[in-house]
């Protein structure tokens, strides 16, 4: 028997109501992601990429279908359990970085450890390490507004990884970066995947990023249009 998939989604559906109109953001998505995978979710704007990531990250609940994360059915978890689950097992990277502006790079990275109740010495050491890993060891005292877009996203990535999560969900992580920086960030994600075996699920429009991904899932109108793996991988 092989280990259960990290994410196992069956027939996930999500509807949004906007006044009279109903938007079917997801219409029965099946998706299995195994340990150590890096996966790109592609598709046109409005195809449901973000919605799928929100469901996978337990930030939202599906209207229909079932989701199992690391063997645990998401529907069996209450609000507090989902919060704890995200804190321990997941990491998030956002298009707009979403760093806390009043905290330094170091403090931002320490945040998940602090939430997990890690002692301050240990926190400092591990945050320092994570920042060094994303190449920002020297800038850990800076606040987000003193960093460039690429640097901020590296801090965000360090924050998403510092507590060694099972999976990182990244929604348009390079959307606000120039193409050169975007490539570096993607390279970083790949190297971190190789180093720690962390699963990355990345929603993106970025063709360069899609091209480099070992696995590509294309969404169209809330359905999985294709699911391809790079032959070389």
């Amino acid at each position: 028997m092989t280990a259960p998939p990290v994410f196992d989604a069956r027939g996930l559906s999500k509807r949004f109501h906007m006044g009279q109109a109903t938007v079917e953001a997801l219409r029965g998505v099946d998706l299995q992601v195994s340990a150590g995978e890096v996966l790109v979710v592609a598709g046109p704007s409005g195809s449901g990429k973000s919605t799928l990531l929100h469901l996978l990250g337990t930030l939202d609940e599906p209207d229909a279908g079932a989701l199992t994360i690391d063997g645990t059915p998401a529907s069996s978890m209450g609000e507090a359990e989902r919060t704890a689950f995200r804190r321990i097992r997941l990491g998030f990277v956002f298009q707009t970085f979403n760093l806390l502006p009043v905290l330094s790079a170091q403090e931002n990275v320490e945040l998940p450890l602090w939430l997990a109740g890690v002692s301050s010495g240990e926190r400092r050491r591990r945050a320092h390490e994570a920042l060094a890993e994303v190449g920002l060891g020297a800038r850990r005292g800076h606040r987000p507004d003193q960093l460039s877009g690429g640097e901020r996203q590296r801090v965000a990535i360090a924050r998403a990884l510092v507590h060694r999560p099972l999976a990182v969900l990244a929604d348009e992580p390079t959307g606000n970066l120039d193409s050169g920086t975007a490539a570096e960030v993607m390279e970083l994600l790949m190297s971190l995947n190789r180093a720690h075996g962390t699963v990355f699920v990345i929603a993106t429009h970025d063709a360069a990023l899609i091209a480099r991904a070992p696995r590509r899932v294309a969404l169209h109108d809330g359905r999985v249009a294709s699911d391809e793996r790079k032959a070389s991988a």
Partner: peptide, 16 residues
């Protein structure tokens, strides 16, 4: 709002 949502996403409890 976005910042508070981020904190929640990272696993901060409602009460925190």
């Amino acid at each position: 709002f976005r910042e508070l949502g981020t904190l929640r996403a990272l696993g901060t409890s409602v009460w925190q």
